[in-house]
């Protein structure tokens, strides 16, 4: 009963549209900030001391573009499920990376939105990413084709 009620509450095209836009704008913003300072982002990744140093820059070069492009596609309602899936995986990776660093007691900058005006990693960051992850998972489940550039011709 409660489950179906919850489902009908979330499965509202305006609410899903809102989730989509929020997630899209955050990822576009994060992507642009990182793209504008590849060196800084590379240092941020390196600070986590999780990736081997040879992979750090490849990650720093490509990840921001994945963020930006999935964000843009999500904004226009193109391949919403697929892009939400990619975003959710990225968020999951971020959450794990921050968790590992917190457990190791690293006092480092998050690098989440570039290094300028950066914030430190912490429980707050994990909660922030978890909320975004929930939005992503909801979009994977329910899709959102409201105001979509690619209106589906068949349902």
């Amino acid at each position: 009963m409660i489950k179906t009620k919850m489902k009908s509450l979330i499965n509202n095209k305006y609410l899903l549209f809102l989730f989509r836009i929020v997630l899209a704008i955050i990822f576009i913003y994060a992507g642009i900030k990182k793209i504008s300072d590849p060196g800084g982002f590379s240092n941020s990744i390196n600070n986590y001391k999780i990736l081997p140093i040879s992979f750090v820059n490849l990650f720093a070069i490509t990840l921001p573009w994945i963020e930006l492009i999935t964000g843009i596609l999500l904004l226009f309602g193109i391949k919403v499920k697929e892009n939400s899936f990619i975003i959710s995986v990225i968020l999951l990776v971020f959450i794990i990376a921050i968790l590992i660093s917190l457990i190791r007691g690293l006092n480092i900058d998050c690098g989440c939105f570039g290094t300028v005006s950066g914030t430190k990693i912490g429980v707050y960051k994990i909660i922030e990413d978890l909320v975004l992850l929930i939005l992503g998972l909801i979009l994977i489940k329910f899709d959102s084709d409201f105001f979509s550039l690619l209106k589906k011709t068949k349902s």
Binding site: I35, P38, G39, S42, N46, I53, S54, V56, N57, L58, A60, I61, T62, L63, P64, W65, I66, L68, I69, T70, L73, K79, E82, N83, I86
Partner: peptide
């Protein structure tokens, strides 16, 4: 989507004067 993004990223980095090398030096 992922492959296209990676290619764009590598291409932009290649053209960017502030580019970082593909392999980070310790």
């Amino acid at each position: 989507i992922i492959i296209a993004s990676c290619i764009i990223g590598l291409l932009v980095n290649y053209l960017n004067p502030e580019a970082v090398p593909w392999i980070k030096k310790e």
